[in-house]
Design a protein around this nucleic acid. Structure first.
Lengths: 69, 69
DNA sequence: TTAACAAGGGCAATATATGGCACTTTTTGC
DNA sequence: GCAAAAAGTGCCATATATTGCCCTTGTTAA
């Protein structure tokens, strides 16, 4: 699933509005709107702020050995 | 561990230089250098490009129920 | 219907990531 | 030690994320 969709799902799961999330996270409401509607390419810091409030964690998994050359 | 450190570890694990990774991923060498030395706040697209080449995957995990208010 | 709330989106100013260039420093191999 | 490769870093132009403001749309409740 799309990353922004996962965020939106999580937010709605918690019953939080975009505006409330903006207040809690310190991320601008306009940024959240853009991101959730799939138009965003947010910075790591933005993703971090949002995920902290939403109780989500960024995990890096090794998918395969080697790399694409 | 720090995210940039995880990237660096993975890159070194594969025996790839920053320059080679830059060529393969399409991300600028300067950007990779900045990011790996902890001074970066990369965009999601940048993280995605790098992780694809390094065979890493972004996973979002629900850490807790509820949110910080 | 009307009011309040939540979300979508255009616009413009500002902040900052990106990336090339040039140079320095560190590491590696002989 | 020496040379080459790799990594670190300052500078700066460009690209783009962030954000507030304001208006529109859709939804819900009275």
């Amino acid at each position: 699933m799309d990353l922004s969709q996962e965020f939106r799902n999580r937010r709605e799961e918690l019953g939080v509005t975009q505006e409330y999330l903006a207040d809690l996270s310190g991320v601008g409401l306009r940024t959240i709107k853009s991101f959730e509607s799939g138009k965003g390419n947010p910075r790591l810091e933005t993703l971090t702020k949002l995920s902290e409030i939403l109780g989500m964690e960024l995990v890096w998994t090794i998918r395969q050995i080697g790399f694409k050359s």
